[in-house]
Design a binder for these strands. Sequence first.
DNA 1: GAGGCCGTCCATCGATGGTTGGAGGTTTGG
DNA 2: CCAAACCTCCAACCATCGATGGACGGCCTC
Lengths: 216, 216
Amino acid sequence: MTQETIKVLVVEDHHVVRQGLVALLNVADGIEVVGEAADGVEAIAQFRKHQPNITLTDLRLPRLSGVEVIQRIRMETPQARFIVLTTYDGDEDIYRALQAGARAYLLKGMTSEELIATIRAVHAGKSHIPPAIAQKLAERMGAEELTPREFDVLEQIVRGKSNKEIATELDISEATVKTHINSLLGKLGVTDRTQAATAAIQRGIVPLESLRKPGP
Amino acid sequence: MTQETIKVLVVEDHHVVRQGLVALLNVADGIEVVGEAADGVEAIAQFRKHQPNITLTDLRLPRLSGVEVIQRIRMETPQARFIVLTTYDGDEDIYRALQAGARAYLLKGMTSEELIATIRAVHAGKSHIPPAIAQKLAERMGAEELTPREFDVLEQIVRGKSNKEIATELDISEATVKTHINSLLGKLGVTDRTQAATAAIQRGIVPLESLRKPGP
DNA sequence: GAGGCCGTCCATCGATGGTTGGAGGTTTGG
DNA sequence: CCAAACCTCCAACCATCGATGGACGGCCTC
């Protein structure tokens, strides 16, 4: 069965979690951790260096997000295989990760047996999406895509800006802001800006970290 | 130095993270993991059974939150010592954990050396709060406490309810709702309900998980 | 080139939200 | 017992928001 060992790259920014994962995987039969990375840039460097069979990665990473890591690596190595392992389960994250080419999406709550089984399965060419995740994905699929402009407006709403402020910020009229809001409310399936803000956060459309300060 | 081994209870709901922590701690000198728990109720049972010197716990747990676990255990065993280890850094969480009697608050990003050093320090009777956390705590200290009623209203705001709906829900007049909102806006240092909602989520005043559905 | 989608703009209107400045009742703690 | 903090309610005002129904040019695709 396990005639060849599976080379795994572990990408995770929390030290203790990463060390734990490495420890877990290294005792597993036929799996060898060939590299570790604590952020997106490092992840790409480590990938180039070790050419792992499987890259196990978190989504929220410093410097480059997990999705970006997947996209960039697949540009140079399309056959690379990815498993996303994260705490978050916002629809948008799942969608984007799978869209980018991840073969599996696991939540950190799963057991190490499941993790190892998934690594073997993905290495064997299969995909694996747990039912709970598939469910969310299905919901997300039915939803309409926000246009770039609507996204800009939504972001400002989450930052607590008024229509007038958004108009100034994006250099458009307040009427236009209202138009965008109106259509994004519909797409998100909500009825006012406050609901839009919480929905955006919950679904991971606007990452909570981006709220701290950074202006455009 | 380490004449006696420190007995540690690890409370963490994510399997892989917990296994990782246990693996890390067990190789450390003078530290022994005497029990593990995946939720709050189990944590209390394990504590009673093993009487650990240190309880290392996450805050977000199924069934009983980390804060509740700390409070309940300290009722029967006031000298119990707690280290909170979490991914989240909302001001409110930090405040409540420390308030409940935690001796240290660490983010999962820290190295295993730091973790082990902190366990030793806390066991030796010291407290340890990293500077970044102390900073947040200081901010939170300057803020006024929300009254229970204001909290109720805030929760409804986060759920996207209108003033009228909140009035019905809490069985008070819309005027009263407005009064509460007015005063909570002031306390949170924001100017409208949308900002109040995002601030509440960011600071951990209203947990994001509570948004899924559960009515009163 | 016709139909779509997008982004921009507009006006109007009713609904909702936030401000101000009261006022009365309760509970709690010194 | 009194003060302080809380909860409740009110009215009336203005600002903001969201809904509606257009309108126009640009761009892409078929």
